[in-house]
């Protein structure tokens, strides 16, 4: 593969199976997640891409009857974040998430971004103010909201709300950011601004994104995994996947022949 593959690994899924009760939703998934790169997960609805993403911050632990098998190792400490011995809260403090629909808390813009910091025990006003500003700047929202930090977050537009959620997720300096179809509820312009933002963020963060929109994966990601029926059909350089994939199934999917 190409030279960029030699970048360091931030995480790696190794033969990961996941069960919703008796239903095996993920089957033997093994892919690397490269440090400071964007990895996209694509595939038709119900292929397990969101399920896979949500393994990374142990979201499945919130609901009964879910079970993991296999490993996701997180570097640099090479810890298996799926191990029952690892507290899911610890995992979520290291790996943050942006959801499909903007879900700001019904609090002020400031408190939304500050919440993750407060959970980490940071309550000093001056520290919070500084970190909130940095996070909002990193999320390209600062200029739009700096005069109304104490307004309700619900008064922002959809795209601004999603960028607020991104600011909230990156305020805690996560090691990996998970994006679960972050633009599916947004208009094309807001989508473009989020994509631009992701491109800037990848200098500092490792990003894993699930998207329905193949062109989005082609535009923003460095690596792409095509999933189908709970399996990774093909994992490759994004350039390769979208010009000349190795597998026929991948080719059929991305050219719009099924799915």
């Amino acid at each position: 593969m190409s030279a960029s593959v030699q970048a360091t690994l931030k995480a790696e899924a190794k033969d990961l199976n996941f069960y919703y009760g008796d239903f095996k939703a993920l089957k033997g998934i093994s892919i690397p997640v490269h440090d400071k790169k964007i990895t996209a997960l694509i595939g038709p609805s119900g292929c397990g891409k969101s399920t896979f993403l949500r393994c990374f911050n142990r979201m499945h632990d919130l609901y009964p009857g879910n079970r993991y098998e296999g490993e996701i190792t997180l570097n640099p400490d090479n810890v298996n974040i799926l191990s029952p011995k690892v507290d899911p809260i610890e995992v979520r403090m290291r790996i943050s998430m942006v959801f499909q629909k903007p879900n700001p808390f019904p609090k002020s813009i400031f408190e939304n971004v500050a919440y993750g910091l407060r959970v980490r025990g940071i309550n000093k006003r001056s520290v919070l103010e500084e970190k909130v500003e940095v996070a909002l700047q990193n999320a390209a929202l600062w200029n739009e909201v700096k005069d109304r930090l104490h307004d309700l977050a619900f008064n922002l537009s959809g795209g601004q709300q999603q960028r607020l959620c991104i600011a909230r997720a990156l305020a805690i300096d996560p090691e990996i950011m998970l994006f679960d179809e972050p633009t599916s509820a947004l208009d094309p312009i807001a989508t473009a601004s989020i994509e631009e933002l992701m491109d800037e963020l990848k200098d500092r963060f490792t990003i894993l994104i699930v998207t329905h929109n193949m062109q989005q994966a082609a535009r923003v990601s460095d690596f792409t995994a095509f999933m189908y029926l709970g399996e990774v059909v093909e994992y490759n350089d994004t350039k390769k996947i979208f010009t000349n994939p190795d597998k026929q199934q991948t080719e059929d999917y991305i050219t719009g022949r099924f799915g």
Binding site: M214, F242, T255, G256
Partner: peptide, 10 residues
């Protein structure tokens, strides 16, 4: 209009 990919793009 179609943003062709892979085989179609080639």
């Amino acid at each position: 209009r179609r943003q062709p990919a892979a085989r179609d793009l080639r």
